[in-house]
Design a protein around this nucleic acid. Sequence first.
DNA 1: GGCGCTGCTATACGCCCTTATAAGAAGAGC
DNA 2: GCTCTTCTTATAAGGGCGTATAGCAGCGCC
Lengths: 208, 208
Amino acid sequence: MIQKPRASYRRETAEDRRRQLGEAALRCIQRNGHAGVSVRQIAAEAGVTQGLITHHFGEVNELVAYAFELMAADIQSGIAAAIAEADDTPAARMDACIEASFSPDIFDQSTLGVWIVFWGLVLHSPKMSAAQQRDNGLYVSRMEKLISDLAEAEGFRVASPRLAAIQFAAMFDGLWLNWCLNPTSFSPEDGIALCRNWVEGLRRGAYA
Amino acid sequence: MIQKPRASYRRETAEDRRRQLGEAALRCIQRNGHAGVSVRQIAAEAGVTQGLITHHFGEVNELVAYAFELMAADIQSGIAAAIAEADDTPAARMDACIEASFSPDIFDQSTLGVWIVFWGLVLHSPKMSAAQQRDNGLYVSRMEKLISDLAEAEGFRVASPRLAAIQFAAMFDGLWLNWCLNPTSFSPEDGIALCRNWVEGLRRGAYA
DNA sequence: GGCGCTGCTATACGCCCTTATAAGAAGAGC
DNA sequence: GCTCTTCTTATAAGGGCGTATAGCAGCGCC
C-alpha cells in the first residue's frame, strides 16, 4: 500500500483551534444551511482533517453548540456596543438598540440564515437548548432594562416590563426571520420605523 | 436467494396517498426534527415502502414542501375559521385572530417545532421558498385587512397598514418561536394580552 | 540538540441515506 | 371474468456521514 505523504500543519492552542473550527462551521451553515452541519464539510472548510473535530469537541453537536455561542456572543456584543456608544439617556439607548438590530452587521440574510438553522436544532439538542436559553435570557434582560429605564425616565407605566421585553425581543426575531425569508417585503429602515412605533405604543400607555 | 413474501397493500388514490405521506412526514419532523426528514423514516411512519415516495413525489424535497403546504393550510384555515365565527365587527374579528393564534391547536410546542424546522429549509430549497412566500403573502394580507378594517371602523390612522401587518405577523412568529424554544417564559394568556396591547398601540396612534 | 507531550493526520468501519429499476398485484372497465 | 393500467413492493448501487484508532510530527523544554 502506498502511503500518502503526511501533510504539514501548524500546532495551535486549543482555544484558537476551537474558534477556527467554530467559524468554519458558521461558514458551512451559511453556505449550505442545515446540510452544512457535517464533520467532513467543516473540517474541509477549516483546512484540517475530520479527526481534529473529534479531538477538540468529542462530537459534532458540541461544535455546533459552540458555533452558536460564538455567533450569539457576536450579536449581543454588537448591540451592547451600540447601546454603550449612545447618548446616556434611556431614549437614546433604546433607539441605538433598535438601529443596531437592523444594521448590516446583524441584519444580513446569510447571517440570519445561520441563526434560523440554529433555531431548528434547539428543540432536539440539549446542548443547543442550554446555549439558546442562556443567550435568550441575556437578550430579554437587556430589553427589559431598556424598557424599564425608558418608562421611569419618561413617566409612563408598563404593567410587566418582563413580558413587554419578551414581545420586543420576539418582534426582532420575527422581523429578522420574515425579512430573511422574504427580503423584498420590507427594508431595514422600515424595520427601524416599526420598532420605533412599537416604543411609541409603550409611551402612549398601551402596555400599562 | 430467498424472496420475502410480498406484503399485501391497499391501492389508494394519488391524492389520498400524497396526503398520508405528507402527514407522516409531519409526524417524523415532529418527533426527530430535521433528522426526521428522510425517505426511509417517512415511509416507515406511513407504513409503505420507500419507492412509493419517489413514485408520488419524485424527490424528498417535493414531499417536504407538500407537507409544509399541508401544515400552512391547516394553520391558515384554523385562524380563518375563528375569524369567520367571530361577531362581525372589526374589533371582534381582530380579537378572534389573536385568540386563535394562541389556541392549543396552533400554539403547541411540537407543532411549532415542525414549523421552525421548515423555516430552516426555506433558504436552501426553491420549492420550500415558493411555498413559504405564498403562505406568508396570504397571512400578511389577512392581517392587513384586519388592521385596515379596524382603523376605519374606529377612526384611527395607520400610516402603512401593510408594514404594520408585517410587524403583526412577525410578532406572532416571534412569540411562537420564543415560546416554543422557552416554554416557561410566558403563557398563552400572556401572549394574547401582549398582542392586544399591540393593537391598543395602534388605536392610540403609535403607527400613524 | 535531543526528548517528550499531545495536537494533528490518515485511515477504516459501519450505518443510513437517496435514487433508480424491475417486477407483481390491485382494482377499474369492458 | 379478463385485461390493462398503474400503484406498490422489493432490491440494488453508490455516496456521505459520524466515530474510533494508530501513529506521525510540531514545538516547548530541558
